[in-house]
Write a protein that binds this DNA or RNA. Structure first.
Lengths: 250, 250
DNA sequence: TGTTCTTGACGAACATGTTCGTTCGCGAAG
DNA sequence: CTTCGCGAACGAACATGTTCGTCAAGAACA
């Protein structure tokens, strides 16, 4: 009897009840929405990154764009880090990492690293995320592969190259993270000015070396310093063997 | 009965009970609390860091410890980054950055950088913060000064040393940020395993260099890789001039 | 067919950093 | 003495990431 009544009731009010936003909304409404997918989420996020920048990509906004709630996204994404890793890999696509190109292997390697750094630099939060996530997407792997190929072309032994690729990528990532943060921060100019002041007015008795070098510490433009740093790294990589290092220090 | 019970109860705990449960708390109560100060906040935060770790230091918990609300802290602190910078500087105290010590200048420099990295490594969030904040506290400046002194002792020209100190600190900070995050993350083992799997099963046609090097990419223990990286950096710093680099590339 | 199990879907709730607006005590000025 | 201005103090509110618990549809099984 109970079941029978219930059956009749729902049958009679089914259509209008649903549309009038009656409190007991049937869950049968659910499948009417287009099914979600991981790729759909990533696609929406990427569109947002390109239109508004990474800071505007939040779980809530993505969910709203997909007509669902933020909690639902966690069925497909582990967390924002997972999402960011996907975004980063997509953003690396334009780089078209390859060992081929013009100029010496060294020129090509530096150009490649510069392009990689550029992507991160343009996305502050991405750079920071790249510091803590071990990217493993196809584009990233292509980047790693290209770097290894270039190091090989430059006669860097495999054993050293295996570690050098980490070193190079870490440095570029860190620099991008540092610089992009400053760029994104409204405090950058004030911070730089405060640092310059601190250095120029430093207590010479306490910090003799800083006092001596003074403004030199802040000299040089970003690209120049970056270029020099890459040269330092490459020079060091070309002349520092792993096992030799180990023995000499033990 | 209810009112009566309440009355009796409050009577028994008159002083503290009134202050805690009475809705119309007079603002005249304010000055009765010990005045806040930036240093008091930092001290509480430091005590928490030492007792429970940085992750447990939140504005709300600090405020609670100081018997106030989190919004009040913003009168004294700009933001959490500001707070973390103070904490970092305090944590650097034990390092006692100095150019003096035993061994070659190189040994001492590496030891100093290792100690610095250790501090960051032990505090994941601190390392990440150090990537985006330009530390300028006294202990940090002492570190910078000591590094400069050691580079000078190692005959690194001032012009190069001025940039090298940045490079060295950035690398160590970045590495600590990377490694400490992994250490703090419950996903570290899974991530590493996934990476190892990805590398060993990589498509050779697509990533020939990665396939060739395989496990070598993940070889070596942290300290060994770090030691080698420092040697790379120092070797590069010792042999890479700034102006020469500029000319050769232009 | 009926029952059980699995999993997508998602609201409520929680923790955290931070901003905005209001109150009130204190010191300066008149 | 009274009034005014400033800034410490702080509650309410907001945005964000994430977890937990519940519901219901579909698959699997008897």
């Amino acid at each position: 009897m109970f079941v029978k009544n219930m059956f009749v009731y729902t049958d009679g009010m089914a259509a209008s009840k649903k549309k009038v936003v009656a409190p007991p909304v049937s869950r049968r409404e659910r499948p009417a929405k287009p099914a979600l997918s991981r790729q759909a989420i990533i696609d929406v996020a990427l569109a947002m990154v390109r239109a508004e920048g990474l800071e505007k990509v939040t779980m809530r906004r993505i969910a709203a764009a997909l007509d669902t709630g933020p909690a639902t996204l966690y069925v497909y994404l582990r967390d924002t880090e997972d999402l960011h890793a996907q975004i980063l890999d997509a953003l690396l696509a334009p780089i078209r990492a390859s060992a081929a190109g013009r100029g010496t292997w060294r020129d090509r390697l530096k150009a490649l690293l510069t392009r990689y750094g550029r992507v991160l630099f343009d996305h502050p939060e991405m750079a920071r995320m790249a510091m803590s996530t071990q990217p493993s997407g196809p584009r990233y792997l292509a980047l790693v592969d290209a770097i290894l190929a270039l190091l090989r072309e430059g006669s860097v032994p495999d054993r050293e190259a295996a570690w050098a690729v980490d070193l190079l990528l870490l440095y570029v990532t860190a620099l991008a993270a540092e610089k992009s943060h400053h760029r994104a921060s409204s405090r950058a100019a004030a911070d730089f000015s405060a640092m310059a002041t601190a250095i120029s007015t430093v207590d010479e008795a306490r910090y003799p070396s800083i006092a001596r070098l003074g403004g030199e510490l802040l000299s040089g433009k970003g690209p120049d310093r970056f270029d020099w740093a890459l040269d330092v790294l490459l020079q060091g990589i070309l002349t520092t063997a792993r096992s030799t290092t180990k023995k000499a220090r033990s």
